[in-house]
Lab assay of single mutants.
Amino acid sequence: RKWEEIAERLREEFNINPEEAREAVEKAGGNEEEARRIVKKRL
């Protein structure tokens, strides 16, 4: 699934746990840019 690939990239890029990465992607509706913004806000 594409969402899992996005979550994996976010996890590696921001050094967050898989659960946090998945939550961000879900919140963003699968949009990678939006997920990235969500993760950055949390850091």
Rank of each mutant, 00 (worst) to 15 (best):
E8H: 07
R11V: 15
V39S: 03
R22V: 09
E4C: 04
V25F: 03
R22F: 12
N31H: 09
E23W: 09
I38K: 04
E12A: 10
I16C: 04
A21E: 01
F14Q: 03
F14K: 02
E19H: 10
R1L: 12
E8A: 13
L43A: 09
L10E: 00
E20D: 11
A21W: 02
I6R: 01
I6N: 01
I6D: 01
E8L: 11
R42F: 09
V39A: 06
L10G: 00
E19P: 04
R11I: 15
A35I: 02
R22M: 15
A35Y: 00
R11E: 13
K2F: 13
I6A: 05
R9C: 05
L10I: 12
E32S: 05
K2V: 14
E12N: 11
N31T: 04
R37A: 14
R1Q: 15
R37H: 10
W3E: 06
G29T: 07
K40G: 09
E4I: 06
E5W: 03
L43R: 07
E20L: 15
E5K: 06
R1W: 06
E33I: 10
A35L: 01
E20Y: 09
I6T: 05
G29I: 09
R36C: 04
A7V: 13
K27H: 10
A24T: 06
G29L: 13
I16P: 02
V25D: 00
A28V: 04
N17Y: 09
R9G: 06
N31Y: 07
E33T: 10
I38P: 00
G30L: 03
V39W: 00
E23L: 12
I16D: 01
W3N: 08
K40I: 15
E32P: 08
N17V: 08
L43Y: 07
E32I: 14
A35T: 02
E32F: 12
E26R: 14
E13P: 00
E13A: 05
K41N: 11
E32H: 11
E32G: 05
L43W: 06
G30H: 03
I38L: 07
I38M: 05
E12P: 03
E4H: 07
K41Q: 15
R37Q: 13
E19D: 13
E8S: 12
N17L: 13
K41A: 14
K27M: 13
W3Q: 07
G29F: 15
N15W: 08
E8K: 12
R9K: 12
I16T: 05
K27G: 07
E26I: 14
R42T: 14
E32Y: 14
I16K: 01
E26K: 13
G30P: 01
R42P: 05
V25W: 03
K2A: 13
N17A: 15
E4K: 06
L43H: 09
L43G: 07
R1D: 15
E4W: 08
R42S: 14
P18T: 14
E8V: 11
E23S: 13
L10V: 05
E12W: 08
E8R: 13
E33G: 09
E20H: 08
N17H: 11
R9H: 07
I38N: 07
A28D: 00
R36Y: 02
R1G: 14
A7G: 04
I6M: 13
A35M: 01
R11F: 08
K41Y: 03
E4N: 07
K40P: 02
K27E: 15
E23F: 06
E5N: 05
N15F: 09
K40T: 11
E13Q: 06
A7K: 04
E32Q: 06
K27V: 11
E8N: 13
A24F: 05
E32A: 08
E23M: 11
E34H: 09
R36W: 02
E13I: 06
N17F: 09
K27F: 07
I6L: 13
E8T: 12
R36P: 00
A28H: 01
E23K: 12
R22Y: 14
E34L: 11
N15A: 10
G29S: 12
L10M: 05
V39Y: 00
R9N: 07
K2C: 06
V39P: 01
G29A: 13
F14L: 08
A7H: 03
R36V: 09
R11L: 15
E12L: 11
R42E: 12
E23Y: 07
E19I: 10
I38E: 08
E32C: 04
E4R: 07
R9L: 09
E34Q: 10
R22K: 12
E4M: 06
G30M: 04
A28Q: 01
E19K: 10
E33R: 08
F14A: 03
N17K: 10
P18K: 11
N31L: 08
K40D: 14
E20K: 05
A24Y: 04
E5F: 02
W3G: 05
E12D: 14
R1V: 13
E13G: 03
E4A: 09
E32D: 04
A21Q: 00
E26M: 10
N31A: 06
V25R: 00
E4Y: 06
A24S: 05
N15T: 06
V39D: 00
A28R: 01
I16S: 03
E20A: 09
K27T: 10
A35K: 00
E34Y: 04
E5C: 05
A7C: 10
K2S: 13
V39T: 06
E33K: 08
P18Y: 15
V25S: 02
R37W: 03
K27R: 13
N17R: 08
E34N: 08
E34W: 04
R1E: 15
K41E: 15
R22P: 01
G29Q: 15
N31I: 11
G29K: 15
R37E: 14
P18V: 14
R1C: 08
E33Y: 08
F14V: 02
I38T: 06
A24C: 05
E23I: 12
E33S: 09
K40L: 08
V39H: 01
I16Q: 02
G29P: 01
R11N: 07
E33V: 11
R11S: 14
E8F: 05
E34R: 09
A7S: 08
